[in-house]
C-alpha cells in the first residue's frame, strides 16, 4: 500500500487572503500571520483582559500574568541590573510571543510560526538592532569598546578583536537559528515517528511493533512541550544578556 511521508508539508504557508505581488515577493495574509495575531490576542487575553479588575487577590489568569511578569522581570534584572527596566516591554513581548507561538505549534494540525527562519531572524534582528542603536546612542563610540577586551596585551588584540566582532555578528544568527532549528526539528521528528505508527500498522505482522513508535511519539511530544517553553526562555534570557552589553559595554 502506498503511504507517503511528507514531514515538510506542515511548514507550508497557506495564503488566506492574497494581496498581490511585488516583484518575486508574494504578499498575502497567510495562516502564519493569522497565528501571529492569534498569539497577540491570547497574550492580550492573559495580560490585559485578565488584569482588568486589578484585584489585590488575583484570579487564575491574573496570577498567570503576574507570574510571567515577575519571571521576566527577575530574568531581566539578573542579566542587566536596574538599568534594564526600560527593556521590560521588549523582553516580555518577545518571551510571550515566542512562548505562545511555540505552544500553538504543539496543537495538532496547527502551524508552528517559529519554524520559519525569517520570523525568528526578524525577532533576532530586532534584538540586535536595539542593542546596537541603544548602545551607540547611550555610549557613542565607547560602545565599540565591547569588541576590545580590557587587560589584554596589544599584540593579542589583533587576534581577539576580530573574534569579538565575529562573535557579535553571529549573535542574531545563533539566536534565530537556535529557535527555528529546535522547533523545525522537533516537529519533523514528531511527524516521522507518528508516521512510523501508521506504516507499521499497515505492514501486516509487523503491526505488533507499532506501539513502539507510538510511545516514542508520546515521549517526543512531551519533550517538544519542554522545548517550546525552554526556547522561549532561552530567547528572552539571551536578549537580556545582549541588552546588558548595550547598557554596560565595558568588559
Amino acid at each position: 500500500m502506498a503511504v507517503t511521508i511528507d514531514p515538510i508539508h506542515q511548514f507550508e504557508l497557506k495564503p488566506l487572503v492574497s494581496l498581490g505581488h511585488i516583484g518575486h515577493q508574494q504578499l498575502a495574509f497567510t495562516q502564519s500571520a493569522l497565528y501571529m495575531f492569534a498569539a497577540v490576542g491570547v497574550i492580550a487575553l492573559i495580560t490585559v483582559v485578565a488584569t482588568a479588575s486589578r484585584s489585590v487577590v488575583p484570579g487564575r489568569m491574573q496570577s498567570l500574568a503576574e507570574i510571567f511578569y515577575e519571571f521576566i522581570a527577575d530574568t531581566l534584572h539578573q542579566a542587566t541590573g536596574d538599568g534594564g527596566k526600560r527593556f521590560m516591554p521588549l523582553v516580555f513581548s518577545l518571551f510571550m510571543f515566542v512562548l505562545i507561538l511555540n505552544l500553538f505549534g504543539m496543537i495538532p494540525y496547527a502551524f508552528a510560526v517559529t519554524s520559519h527562519l525569517i520570523i525568528t531572524f526578524g525577532l533576532a534582528a530586532l534584538v540586535i538592532s536595539v542593542v546596537v542603536i541603544f548602545g551607540v546612542m547611550k555610549h557613542g563610540t565607547h560602545f565599540f569598546g565591547l569588541f576590545v577586551p580590557s587587560g589584554v596585551p596589544k599584540p593579542l588584540l589583533a587576534i581577539l578583536v576580530p573574534i569579538e566582532i565575529i562573535s557579535f555578528i553571529s549573535r542574531p544568527i545563533s539566536l534565530s537559528v537556535r529557535l527555528f532549528a529546535n522547533v523545525l526539528a522537533g516537529h519533523i521528528a514528531m511527524k516521522i515517528f507518528a508516521f512510523f505508527v501508521v506504516q507499521l500498522l499497515l505492514a501486516g505482522a509487523w503491526s505488533v511493533l507499532s506501539p513502539l513508535p507510538l510511545f516514542l511519539t508520546i515521549a517526543l511530544t512531551a519533550l517538544e512541550f519542554l522545548v517550546a517553553a525552554l526556547q522561549a526562555y532561552v530567547f528572552a534570557t539571551l536578549t537580556a544578556i545582549y541588552l546588558n552589553d548595550a547598557l554596560h559595554p565595558g568588559h
Binding site: F29, S32, A33, M36, P89, F92
Partner: peptide, 27 residues
C-alpha cells in the same frame, strides 16, 4: 523547503512587524 522559500519573506516580515508591533504597544 517551505521555511527557505524566499518568495514569502517580505510578506512574513510585514505581518511579523505588525503583529509584534501591536503586541509591544499593548504590553
Amino acid at each position: 523547503f517551505p521555511p527557505f522559500e524566499t518568495s514569502g519573506f517580505l510578506s512574513q516580515l510585514i505581518w511579523l512587524a505588525l503583529a509584534f508591533g501591536l503586541l509591544y504597544y499593548l504590553m
